[in-house]
């Protein structure tokens, strides 16, 4: 049954009485979508969306092994495990694809599902010791983020630990794109030119994959291994439909992240369902709107853009 749409409960309450809880939820949702979306722009442009899929799954064994070795669920441990797993994934995919006749898509399929299965084995074998449950791995627990222990700085409670961590990840992603903008742009558009300019697109590729692993592990507990793929691809794909220059595409994917976080919150509260899933549904709806905008505006190609503020999704 669809619950009635109660304006007070669905739209007002999350920003008033419910703010102490839902404030963190929507902020975490936005930060996850922001970090994923920014990195995702480059995955979309480099036709590597499936690599994002692969890494989101194969960091599971990385986290499990890191946990078993250190007996700690600390942030640094988790990130190190994910980083190693992410890089192992990209190296293995390239190795299989280069050294055998197997093509890249098949290599991706082999590597990530095998590593994911390996992670599932580890977690089953050491179920008593690994505090990761399967539902959380697949779908995340965004709605509960406000109940996580708070990070303390100088004796003051700043924010729930996962939110603070994700905030730092976002800053790192923004810094990475800002400092290596030229390298990312040229190596995505024309890798051969990048090489000839002395830019080493191979290094750029691995740096991007490392950043992707960090982003995904940060997003993992919030939205799980499956929904994170949507977070990676939807903002960039939506922006790609609407604009014709990279800086605007990056900006528009940020707007997409914010809109889908807010819309997902209200949808999740209304239907009393997983807020992570609701965010993805909202993001997909925005993609559909962008697509309609393209279909309706096709006649306008080549003519000056419409005045600001008239477009349907605020881009």
């Amino acid at each position: 049954m669809i619950p009635p749409f109660d304006w007070q409960r669905v739209v007002v309450a999350p920003w008033t009485d419910g703010l102490p809880t839902y404030g963190w939820v929507v902020l975490m949702g936005f930060l996850v979508a922001l970090a994923c979306g920014l990195i995702g722009n480059f995955l979309v442009l480099r036709r590597m969306a499936l690599v994002g899929d692969a890494i989101s799954h194969s960091i599971l064994p990385g986290i499990a092994v890191a946990f078993l070795l250190s007996k700690s669920r600390g942030t640094i441990v988790m990130f190190s495990g994910a980083l190693v797993a992410g890089l192992v994934t990209t190296v293995l995919i390239e190795f299989i694809h280069r050294r055998t006749r197997v093509k890249q898509d098949a290599a991706i399929g082999i590597v990530f599902s095998t590593l994911f299965a390996f992670g599932v084995l580890l977690i089953s074998m050491f179920a008593g010791q690994v505090d990761l449950d399967a539902d959380c791995v697949l779908y995340g627990e965004l709605g509960l983020v406000g109940m996580e222990p708070y990070a303390m700085i100088g004796g003051v409670e700043i924010a729930p630990q996962p939110v603070l961590t994700m905030g730092i990840v976002c800053l790192l992603v923004v810094a990475l794109i800002f400092f290596f903008y030229k390298e990312l742009l040229v190596s995505s558009f024309d890798p051969a030119l990048a090489t000839s300019l002395g830019m080493r697109p191979g290094v750029v590729h691995h740096a991007l994959m490392a950043a992707l692993s960090v982003v995904v592990v940060g997003a993992f507990r919030a939205v799980g291994a499956i929904l994170v793929i949507a977070m990676l691809i939807l903002p960039g794909a939506t922006a790609y439909l609407l604009v014709s220059r990279l800086p605007r595409m990056l900006l528009l994917s940020v707007i997409h992240a914010a809109l889908s976080a807010v819309a997902g919150l209200h949808l999740g509260v209304w239907l009393d369902c997983s807020i992570g899933a609701a965010m993805v549904v909202a993001g997909a709806a925005l993609f559909t709107l962008a697509w309609l905008r393209v279909l309706l505006g096709r006649r306008l190609v080549g003519s000056p853009p419409e005045p600001e503020g008239t477009s349907m999704i605020g881009g």
Binding site: K182, V186, F189, M199, S244, R245, L246, M249
Partner: peptide, 13 residues
């Protein structure tokens, strides 16, 4: 998503 100017500027990178 680049325009003509963006591509030519890559030559300066």
């Amino acid at each position: 998503p680049v325009n003509v100017m963006d591509v030519v500027l890559m030559g300066r990178y």
